[in-house]
Design a binder for these strands. Structure first.
Lengths: 200, 200
DNA sequence: AAAAACTGTTGATATGGGTCATGGCAAAAG
DNA sequence: CTTTTGCCATGACCCATATCAACAGTTTTT
């Protein structure tokens, strides 16, 4: 296992935390992925094109968002190290995307394309299991987000976010976070300002 | 296959639409499920108890919701015939639920418990595949909902809902739909009223 | 069959967060 | 080093939706 490029090591650790693969399986698994380096502001997914890949973040930060008719941007997902990102409605059904996915920083990704993923899953039950677990957990994750969005007001949503994802909050531009939380930049700015004064 | 109780037939059709199972596999699959009949207003999941089952609706209608501190109810999910429902954060991780799941009508369910589901998935790749597809699709479904909730205003959210799920809209109490759409009963009532007058 | 509880409607009023406008600062571009 | 651009802050004002209240029809309970 010593000849594996270092970009793959985080993904191997990620996988081993969720399923137990033999060395051969690990090798087969990571061979389905290619290293992709992208620059800040580069897009890996755009509306009307099919999302060809599922992306694992080795290094960097990305943002998935939609743009409404009026031009308003809404952040659907962030991804930093050890997260996955894609437009799942596009990737899973292999139909045109509705989201942009853009790098917020220079980033290093591991990409698997849809075809390779299908082959991998068919080639062994454990691979299938891994992707099943991914699906389950992202369903649970999304359900939590839906609950928070319905239940909490703007300030509480922000509080929850920095409690749960402090690393992301520090790293992404505030307007992207605002649109993830379903509020305007101005509102988020005021909320943050209020907190600063309260704490003193 | 003729000795299978009729409650199972919709589930068999449901499964065959997503994966192709042999007769033996179908039999193994449905044997993991029990028929459960519940009365209107009966709960199948409650906060602080672990959600033991994943539930397929053969007949009837159910509603998953949370109750906030102030007593405000928020509908997370509806399920009618041919839908699945559970508190996935509870079921998948086998930890205490935060949701109620209650029958809106007398209903017939097919339930699989967590233990049986795990066994089933380990007993054959195709079963794993089925649950993997479920997970993928519900992730995609939830992502669509998140996008709509961030993007649309109250009236548009309602329009989208009746366009996508007309059968559910007809069948559930309006205050449950309002809380699903993230608005008050009063607002939904006004939106509906406005539509009626516009149409004429 | 009367009472109670539940559900939906409508009106009056309030407010959280949006919109618009301006300015400042830091980083990138030239 | 200067200019431009991107990001954030702040103030004034506004609007979509919430809140509160009263009522009516319907369903459930007794």
């Amino acid at each position: 296992m010593s000849d594996i490029p270092e970009e793959y090591l985080p993904l191997i650790a990620h996988v081993q935390k969720r399923v137990s693969f033999s060395d051969t399986e690990i090798r087969t698994f990571i061979e389905a992925f290619q290293v992709k380096k992208i620059k800040k502001r580069q897009f890996i997914i755009q509306p009307d094109f099919v999302a060809t890949h599922r992306n694992y973040v080795v290094k960097g930060a990305l943002r998935g968002y939609t743009v409404a008719d009026g031009g308003q941007e809404n952040t659907i997902q962030f991804a930093i190290e050890d997260w996955w990102i894609s437009d799942y409605n596009s990737y899973i059904y292999q139909k045109p995307a509705t989201m942009f996915v853009m790098a917020l920083e220079d980033s290093v990704l591991l990409q698997i394309d849809h075809r390779a993923e299908e082959q991998l899953k068919q080639s062994g039950q454990k691979f299938e299991t891994f992707f099943r677990i991914m699906g389950e957990r992202s369903t649970a994750y999304m359900q939590r987000r839906i609950i928070r969005n319905l239940t909490l007001n703007a300030e509480e949503r922000y509080e929850e976010f920095i409690k749960n994802y402090p690393l992301i909050a520090q790293r992404v531009p505030q307007y992207t976070l605002a649109s993830y939380l379903g509020m305007t930049t101005e509102s988020l700015s005021r909320i943050r300002n209020k907190r600063v004064h309260k704490k003193s």
